[in-house]
């Protein structure tokens, strides 16, 4: 069983909404990686977008944004947001996965 249990904030607050989108969380992660490169930059970029969603700062393509629209401002607390983004990074990061 994964250390990230079904009760964690990422699975409760992020996955349900993203399941309906045409781009997976993995693909979105790679889009962010292309723009921000490092862990610190990427986490800061995601948090900023979730707090102040805007087409101008979205890492996704215009086509994607036009198709699915811009999400609403996050309702998560700062701590919940930090935890969720940390889990997101740990789940999809490239480090230690390449062989």
């Amino acid at each position: 069983m994964s250390s990230l249990s079904a009760e964690n904030i990422f699975e409760r607050k992020c996955i349900p909404c993203h399941q309906a989108l045409p781009a997976s969380l993995q693909e979105m992660f790679k889009r962010y990686l292309l723009v921000y490169s490092s862990e610190t930059n990427m986490k800061a970029g995601i948090k900023h977008f979730l707090r102040y969603p805007s087409k101008d700062i979205s890492a996704m393509s215009d086509l994607f944004v036009d198709t699915v629209g811009i999400k609403k401002k996050t309702s998560l607390s700062a701590k919940e947001l930090d935890d969720a983004v940390d889990i997101y990074w740990d789940r999809y990061k490239v480090f230690y996965k390449l062989k």
Binding site: T40, V94, L98
Partner: peptide, 22 residues
């Protein structure tokens, strides 16, 4: 996940914070 290799050289990749990715 297989990192690209080449017999003519060896390589490494680093992120913008100089952290080694591979």
């Amino acid at each position: 996940v297989e990192y690209p290799r080449d017999p003519r050289f060896t390589s490494a990749i680093y992120d913008v914070a100089f952290q080694q990715i591979f």
